[in-house]
Amino acid sequence: MSDIFPKWTNRLPLQIAVGVVVAGTAVTAGVWYYFTPKYTRVGYQPIQPVAFSHAIHADQLGLDCRYCHSAVEKSWYSNVPSASTCMNCHSQVLKDSPKLELVRESAATDKPIPWVQVHKMPDYVYFNHSVHVNRGISCVECHGQINKMDEVYHAKPFSMTFCLDCHRNPAARVRPPDRITDLNWKWNDDPKKAAELQKQNGDKFVHDWKVQSLQSCSACHR
């Protein structure tokens, strides 16, 4: 009696099993890596209509963030400055620069500059800038070192775990309120010492300022 199946089929179940494991691992790994905000958001760097450099303004010239983003301490929304804010300086500095054509036009005609949004919260998440900024959470915690960016890019993932990591342990991030917009600030140049000071002061700040880092679902998904 001849064999119905050739001999190599004996190895088929094993091959299939290995194939499934490999493919499954690949898919899992792929989704794990590519489908998360770490990949989809971090590094997003659209070209803006005006070549505005935070590195020049904030780092080199030392402008405070709140000179332009003036509502950040008062509203859930951190405003993008009006063109007239730019013109406070640029009516004298670089006043004929072709790069600022759009800004001058906007200030003159009230036609808005179409900045491209980089950091975007989904509609189902409530985020309040003023609450965070007034409780010792620096801009840098979420936006990264904006003061080093020529063109703004998305530095942090903004995933749910990104928010929760901090909400579960705010003491590790809070800093003196007058250092909120100083993005280069550290407790100490020595990382070991800095960690020690953060630990010492963090708990005190959380207690003294009544920081309620809410973890209930409805804190953000309201």
Partner: peptide, 21 residues
């Protein structure tokens, strides 16, 4: 695909106006 959204600030900001407050 990431939808590209624009932020359109004022040309001249009205006095005492804070968006969101």
């Amino acid at each position: 695909r990431r939808p590209e959204e624009k932020i359109l600030p004022f040309g001249k900001a009205p006095e005492n106006y804070i968006h969101g407050a």
